[in-house]
């Protein structure tokens, strides 16, 4: 009887505590939610503004203070697709897609085995190797620009997709190795050992176990490499001219020092961002899973 009463008391106490805490938690949650919304809006507002401006005429886009309710037009997009300029964006978009997709595939092909050798079957001094990968990102990219330009000129690779693929692969490889290592470390070794005991060879283990389990991680890594390659401007603007010009370089061609260009540039920026946004939305679930997997680690 006594124990029942004690239990009941403790339950009611717990309820009382719970009833006191719950509103506090809710308040804090609401506050955090509000802060998250504010930050979200701060990040999204410029993008929304860019999209809105892309549907305005040049004169409306240039007004100060900016006009929210100016008449909408598709002139900016028509201009991007060459209606008023005679310049098609397709070669630049295709070049960007080629350089980004091929370099991302190469990065994956190289980073997954490398990450395996640094996590599941770590090589000797693997932490030094990881640090070495990191050091390659410490040199400011612009410092390598002139030597790369001269090498590309000497080897006849200027203005070619091959050069961009090589550069983007080497630029993204260290990040990919770090990311993939953190994802592969999550895979319990016992599963791999069990597969080995069942007679699976390395390729089978990769194909049937490692790649399916680290799928979200691979998706996250691919997307990040793709985005970095797609958005790269510095090297592309210096190393390409007419044959291998990429979308970000094409985008800058709408800026002029004589006349209005804000609406045109916004429309071009929206169009150029579109493939990345689509890829991001398509891989949203995998991306969140992948990034949180790495974060937990």
């Amino acid at each position: 009887m006594t124990s029942v009463v004690t239990r009941a008391t403790s339950v009611s106490k717990a309820r009382a505590v719970g009833s006191v805490r719950r509103p506090r938690r809710t308040k804090r949650g609401a506050l955090l939610g509000l802060v998250a919304w504010i930050f979200g809006l701060i990040f999204v507002t410029p993008v929304l503004w860019m999209i809105l401006t892309s549907f305005h005429s040049e004169t409306s886009a240039a007004t100060n203070p900016p006009s929210l309710f100016a008449p909408l037009t598709l002139d900016g997009y028509a201009n991007f697709f060459g209606a008023n300029t005679g310049a098609s964006p397709w070669p630049a978009l295709i070049n960007s897609a080629q350089a980004s997709i091929i370099s991302t595939l190469l990065v994956l092909a190289l980073s997954i085995p490398a990450a395996y050798a640094l996590s599941i079957r770590p090589v000797r001094k693997w932490s030094d190797v990881m640090f070495f990968f990191l050091t390659t990102k410490m040199l400011p990219m612009v410092a390598g620009l002139l030597p790369i330009y001269l090498i590309a000129k000497a080897t006849g690779l200027l203005d070619s997709i091959i050069l961009l693929v090589i550069l983007y692969t080497s630029m993204n490889l260290p990040i990919a190795v770090w990311m993939m290592r953190s994802f592969l470390s999550e895979i319990p070794v016992e599963i791999l050992e069990a597969a080995s005991i069942d007679g699976a060879n390395l390729l089978t283990i990769f194909r049937r176990i490692i790649i399916p389990i680290s799928g979200p991680g691979i998706a996250a890594t691919s997307l990040i490499c793709f985005i970095f390659s797609w958005n790269e401007l510095l090297f592309a603007s210096v190393l390409t001219s007419t044959q291998a010009i990429t979308a970000p370089v094409f985008l800058t061609s709408f800026v002029t020092s004589q006349g209005l260009f804000l609406a045109k540039v916004c429309a071009a920026a929206v169009a150029v961002s579109f493939p990345v946004l689509v890829a991001g939305f398509a891989a949203q679930d995998k991306l969140v899973q992948g990034l949180s997997l790495g974060a937990v680690k």
Binding site: L106, A109, I162, A244
Partner: peptide
């Protein structure tokens, strides 16, 4: 594995060469 990775690389570079 290495051969497989090299083949991917060569194919990719060849593809981009065609495009460039």
């Amino acid at each position: 594995l290495l051969t497989g990775a090299s083949m991917v690389a060569v194919a990719a570079v060849a593809l981009s060469g065609c495009a460039a």
